[in-house]
Amino acid sequence: MSLIATASCEHLIDLLWEAACHGDEQAAIDAVFGALEDGIPAERVLLDLIAPVQRKVGEEWAANRLTVAQEHAASAVNDRVIAALSRRCAARASAGRGTAVVACVDREWHGLPARLLAEVLALRGWTVDYLGAQVPTSHLISWIHQRGPQVVALSSSIATRLPAAHAAITAVQATGTPVLVGGAAFGRDGQYARLLGADAWAPDASSAADRLDEGPLALPGPAHQPLDDLPHLIDQEYTLVSRTRSALVRAVMDALADRFPAMRDYTAAQFEHTAEDIAHIVDFLATALYTDDPELLNDFLAWTAGILTARGVPAHSLVPALHILSEQLKDFPRAILMLDQAANRLTGAGTVIASDSRTAV
């Protein structure tokens, strides 16, 4: 719970938001340092001021009110503000809690949630090795062997990284090190963390630090393989869809113009964006097959429908692509069921509310 009065918090968020939007790093740092001087603890500044501003950056981009360049610039300001805050507070933090490795799973490029956790743990006395975004599992394991941490915290914001997260969890546990996970990819209540065998899950940085304050996580049990956690993978649908991703995207693009005639008038940029959207759909379908959870695909399509609507593209344009994919995967019963269910949802409900299945902090 926030320790900052609501009115004060909203005012400070507004100051930080304006500074981030205008690329004014010094104004953003002044706002954050002013909050510290007013007696607001550094942890609350991180989680009640900086994190909400970054969430708003993502929301404004999704609503087409920020360009990609503006989103990147605002995110960069927030990142530098965290660095300034970290330098200012470094002398006050007392180590002694142990070593924690904090990293994003392979191909996860939303680094801010992990960065916030690393800073919170450092404030609470941990020696933190923050490895940043997109850490290959083999490199992570090498680092663990060198450092011997008490815990590894893995972050992922994009659900399509769950297979990579599963591999990382299993590999880290094989070193005898417990794994705490967090981030939007693991579900609203951590259902995918449990599914993939993580030793603990936390919905946010404060909760993660609180869990570690309670005492060490239990050491993982005997080494196992991902198939032990997910026996449905024996049908190979996930593997085959993943391996044929490029061919599936090409097949959908080749057939889509006949099903959605408006596409014939697309510009080169629109055509490219459509191909990217279809590739994302295939990725989320594959991840839904991996977890055996159709809601993962449905949530992504709801989010995509909202994005398309904000950009003036009808959400129903997704349905022909789903039908073509279903035809291409006629020998994959789980995939067909998920795609048909998703198409029915879009057809019946129109544009659904956006989900957090693809957004970061």
Rank of each mutant, 00 (worst) to 15 (best):
H22I: 01
V352D: 00
Q150W: 01
G306V: 01
V361D: 01
L329T: 11
E295D: 15
A28L: 12
T291A: 15
D38I: 00
T170K: 12
N64H: 06
A305K: 08
D292P: 00
I40E: 00
R55S: 02
A208I: 07
R211L: 10
P333C: 05
I234Q: 13
A74C: 11
R311F: 03
D213K: 03
V352N: 02
T160P: 00
F284M: 15
Q26R: 05
A51N: 05
R259S: 13
D254C: 02
A209N: 04
E71G: 04
L308Y: 04
E37R: 13
S86Y: 00
T347Y: 00
R80W: 14
T304G: 01
Q173H: 03
S75T: 14
T177L: 10
G197F: 11
A118E: 09
G148M: 05
G96W: 08
Q191P: 00
Q270R: 04
N64F: 03
A205Q: 04
Q328V: 05
L346I: 10
P261H: 10
P216W: 02
A5G: 08
Q270A: 05
L227K: 09
L217I: 12
L227V: 15
P178W: 11
A51T: 02
E295R: 15
C104R: 05
G182V: 11
V179A: 15
T6Q: 07
Q173T: 06
G176L: 12
T239V: 08
P113N: 05
P320C: 09
I13C: 09
T274V: 02
M1F: 05
V172N: 09
A90G: 08
A268R: 01
V105A: 12
P203Q: 05
A185Y: 08
R107V: 02
L289W: 09
V45A: 10
D79H: 13
P314Q: 09
A35T: 08
P333Q: 08
A269F: 08
L339M: 11
T267S: 06
A198V: 14
S326L: 01
D38Y: 00
L297P: 09
C21I: 08
L219G: 13
V57C: 01
S326R: 13
D235R: 06
A20F: 08
Y290V: 15
E37F: 02
G23N: 09
G190D: 10
A62E: 03
Y192P: 06
R97Q: 07
A103H: 03
S242V: 11
E37H: 12
A90S: 15
T175R: 06
M263L: 12
A168Y: 13
S242C: 15
F260K: 06
L217A: 13
G111M: 06
P41M: 06
E10Q: 15
E10M: 11
R259C: 11
